[in-house]
Write a protein that binds this DNA or RNA. Structure first.
Lengths: 333, 333
DNA sequence: TCGATTCATGTAAGCGCTTACGGAGGAAGG
DNA sequence: CCTTCCTCCGTAAGCGCTTACATGAATCGA
């Protein structure tokens, strides 16, 4: 166990603890010779600076915080994973805080991570409504949001246009000749929920269709299943010939319900999701969806944070594109 | 921002900082009256003790560490999520360290978390080969492993018998009349990989079958896809009529490949997975698998850790059962 | 009434670092 | 040869807590 402190190193190297600290932190005012002796002593003793003691004086620990709406959600985790990798590359730890998709919890998360004096935080998705409050809690801790922009630009963001994805879907379905397109939205506590719905509505209007088949649920498997059951309860005449789910998880669960009800996908109903999680491609039928490039977003967010932590200026927002991936669940019927 | 320190509280309450500390930590030797004044001052000032300063003196921070083989793996994350919830209930943060399924990385994880002086750590799966080394790095930090036992019982464990699950699968497939059962194993760096294979071999032997169709890969989607492609390359005569994958992810990816090759599931080939991740139930066909009760395991592990952190005696290992969930991918054909 | 306890509280030290400050040499300048 | 200025380094203080110890007041029995 690293019970060896900076004092031990100092003794071993025959210098004072202050010098050790300077040497290790690359401060000036240490002769090359001394520096070398310190480095050697460190190696000999296997000394590792205590992150928490260091955190106390520096008011910042070598840990990043990630605020995530759902720790078990296959959409968010690849992003978090990317961030964790970058963090570890910097020798940083990663703290996860699961908000359970509650906007209020995100503020708590901010406060919590702030008192831990993390070096930086990445907020995944969620709502922008409370960004000011979060910024207040985070008081000066470098923070970036991913998957959305922040309210009033308080935080730099790596984002994409959720509405554009919806538009691509509607146009695709339209081109396929689908006439009655239903939308199953996620919770509107989040930007994703609101914007994907908005995009759907606008695209429907623009293509001269009425967006009257709109349901809401949670972004989860259960949410998708429940909404689909509800949809199936409609009188046959009002049944859609295409369902656009606001997330892949919802779509996948929905397809299962549809099949159980004897509805064929894509013949009777085309199905489209949003997010392109790994399971979308291997579902049966493979799920048409809006690809979001999660890994890229994670890496970009981490990189932005890296810059900010490094003391750089506030970076500009980065927009990434979305892309419609057409698969079997909406193949031409 | 919580820039208010214990000194501020002391001043506000008109007592000394030592008294504030004692009052806040429930130490004896504080009059009820004083205690009340302190509590009031805390509330008035919105004081929150600095976890990191506290960590420095106590040599233990209010954070738990989780060592996880894959942060984006839908099998592990529900467990981690359960732990995170318990942790937060205790006011603790959660640090995740992704080993990428490398046993060596798990030791690094231990060292890393140890220097952060986490209050406790949960190791998910992995190998038990390096448990001694990990214990050494963790020097006294309460630790429990989940999903396997630890070598020589160095850590308390919440485990199940991987081999029993395999046996259930083999017997099930056998009862279905399948004659040529193939096994697609996960990486044998982990206990899960080794034991599931062993269980398969033994069950095959006990039922008088030869276990000659055995492939290995990674536990991931890609691993399952690759192994399946390999399997399909076999001459038709050697083709299995059932494939038992060591994980659900592998099985799901495998089913996709099978379908693409025109192999019908379950008619031509029955497919079974292991783990019962959320997507298993909604796949098409729904996947027969070995249920492992991930949430329960997460909660139990967290609870054990809670006990240990509370200073209790080393808890006994807890074994949880596994259960075969029969679904469409192996329905009687 | 008086020492012996007991209880509540204040103070100092220390956890393992960082960093401002100041002192000791040595090099440069006159 | 003496001042001035660097360079390199040691020391002290402080980050925000906990806790051992010291102090003083209150309580008790005799």
């Amino acid at each position: 166990m690293s019970t060896v402190s900076i004092y031990d190193v100092a003794r071993e190297a025959g210098v004072s603890y202050g010098t050790v600290s300077r040497a290790l932190n690359g401060r000036s005012g240490v002769s090359p010779h001394t520096r070398r002796r310190v480095v050697e002593a460190v190696a000999r003793l296997g000394y590792v600076p205590s992150p928490i003691a260091r955190g106390l004086t520096r008011r910042s620990t070598i840990a990043f915080g990630i605020v995530v709406p759902g720790m078990a959600d296959p959409f968010f985790m690849p992003i978090a994973q990317g961030i964790e990798q970058v963090a570890r590359g910097m020798g940083h730890a990663t703290m996860l805080y699961d908000t359970g998709r509650s906007a209020a919890a995100a503020v708590e998360a901010a406060a919590f991570l702030a008192q831990f004096r993390v070096a930086g935080v990445v907020v995944l998705g969620g709502s922008n409504r409370l960004d000011d409050e979060m910024a207040e809690k985070l008081a000066g801790i470098p923070t970036v949001v991913a998957l959305r922009r922040s309210r009033g630009g308080v935080f730099p963001a790596v984002f994409f246009d959720h509405a554009v994805g919806s538009r691509l879907v509607v146009e695709h379905l339209r081109a396929l000749g689908r006439r009655r397109i239903a939308f199953v939205g996620g919770d509107e506590e989040s930007v994703a929920g609101v914007e994907r719905l908005r995009g759907f509505r606008e695209a429907m209007r623009d293509t001269g269709q009425s967006a009257d088949l709109v349901l809401r649920g949670a972004f989860t498997l259960d949410g998708g299943a429940a909404a689909t059951v509800e949809m199936l309860a409609q009188p046959a005449g009002r049944r859609p010939d295409a369902i656009f789910y606001a997330s892949d998880a919802m779509a996948l669960a929905g397809m299962r319900r549809l099949r159980e009800a004897g509805v064929r996908v894509p013949d009777d109903v085309a199905v489209v999701g949003y997010g392109d999680i790994a399971f979308a491609a291997i579902a049966e039928p493979p799920l048409t969806t809006v690809r979001v490039h999660q890994e890229q977003i994670g890496l970009l967010a981490a990189r932005l944070l890296e810059q900010m932590v490094g003391g750089g200026p506030r970076p500009a927002d980065i927009e990434v594109g979305v892309e419609l991936i057409v698969r079997g669940s909406s193949a031409a019927s």
